[in-house]
Design a protein around this nucleic acid. Structure first.
Lengths: 201, 201
DNA sequence: CATAAAGGTAAGTAACACTTACTTACAAAG
DNA sequence: CTTTGTAAGTAAGTGTTACTTACCTTTATG
């Protein structure tokens, strides 16, 4: 009675790949299970051997992408020194990931949030971990006096998260190009130095 | 042959009201056309006399809410004097609307963006108008030297839009309370003055 | 080699968005 | 007062599609 190693069966991999490929050109709703199966070269029933739901398939694909993304983030932010540098790195990496992997971005920013079930999925816990990373950098920035002591950590976190999303939202939706470097340095400059003009007029 | 006035038939109104009511407790996908009709006291077929689609119904309801919202925004921003005040007003009004009208917020922030069709709807042109209002305030702020001359207007617009959204996203999703005053003044302070600590340490 | 479990298939089902063909109300024109 | 054209509303389908159930096939090991 051997407990077979948790191998990822070829059918399962094919289904996820097929689905990812379809998501590159169509939205979730208009992709049918028949289409996913046909494109993967398996039967429709097999989808439900590995995924409870069509939505579950979506979450699993998102989770797969997010796992790679989170690893990248953690690796890169380890090297940064100041709070400023770390936040710029994380913003840059986020925007870069979103623009280089439009499927990932489209799923995360446009397709999953409409279902309550998502917020109980493992994909969402990855998002929470990502958000926590940002919050942690902010907290340390306050501690070492790099940031103003009365900074609202949670609000700053939300401003940064929102800025990242909206900086690439239009580009992701309409498949346009984005200058990642300019956007990330622009965001971090606004948030750090503010936009108020202090020069004498 | 009298051209009857463009009256809004009772059936149409009942359908929109019924749908709005259902959206308060359920997500779009799990609301059925039979449910909408039953709750409205009409037959299913009538929905398709007034709306091309279930999605079209969603957009029309959103548009209705947004029209009221945009009127509010325009009325209030007229009174503000400085760029700072105007932006604070618009952020406050947005957050207030989102928290007071959760259905509107849920539709706008979570339910519509997943379909390409939305971006051709009249509801989306309202959103563009709203975003243009913010951009206009920023542009004037740069002109009259209230904002730094090298401010990236479009990026600042995105930071503000993103901040508004993320400031209330969690509250909208999980139906929690939000301190609108604290959030809006917090956002505007971060964006105007920045979070960098300039005090001598 | 028996067998148990995982990998995979094929046919079917229920639900639901949307259609079609029809009826009723009603406001003017003749 | 009748005719007529149109808008409001109904009732009974229909095709598609997500999901199920029962079944076959391969493989690995006790």
């Amino acid at each position: 009675m051997k407990s077979r190693p948790n191998t990822n069966p070829p059918g399962r991999k094919k289904i996820m790949a097929s689905f990812s490929q379809l998501m590159a050109t169509k939205d979730f709703q208009s992709i049918t299970t028949a289409e996913i199966a046909g494109n993967a070269g398996v039967t429709e029933g097999l989808i439900y051997k590995y995924f409870t739901d069509k939505k579950d398939l979506l979450y699993q694909v998102l989770n797969q992408h997010f796992t790679a993304f989170q690893a990248l983030i953690e690796e890169r932010t380890a090297t940064g020194k100041t709070c400023f540098e770390k936040l710029e790195t994380i913003i840059f990496a986020s925007l870069e990931s979103y623009t280089q992997n439009r499927v990932f971005a489209r799923i995360l920013l446009l397709e999953v949030r409409n279902t309550p079930m998502y917020f109980e999925s493992c994909a969402y816990s990855m998002v929470k971990k990502y958000a926590a990373t940002i919050l942690d950098i902010i907290s340390r920035g306050i501690e070492n006096k790099e940031l103003k002591p009365d900074t609202d950590r949670f609000l700053l976190q939300k401003v940064i998260l929102g800025a990242i999303e909206h900086a690439c939202l239009k580009q992701v939706i309409f498949n346009r190009e984005l200058d990642v470097t300019a956007a990330s340095s622009g965001i971090i400059n606004i948030v750090f130095y503010g936009v108020k003009n202090n020069e004498c007029q």
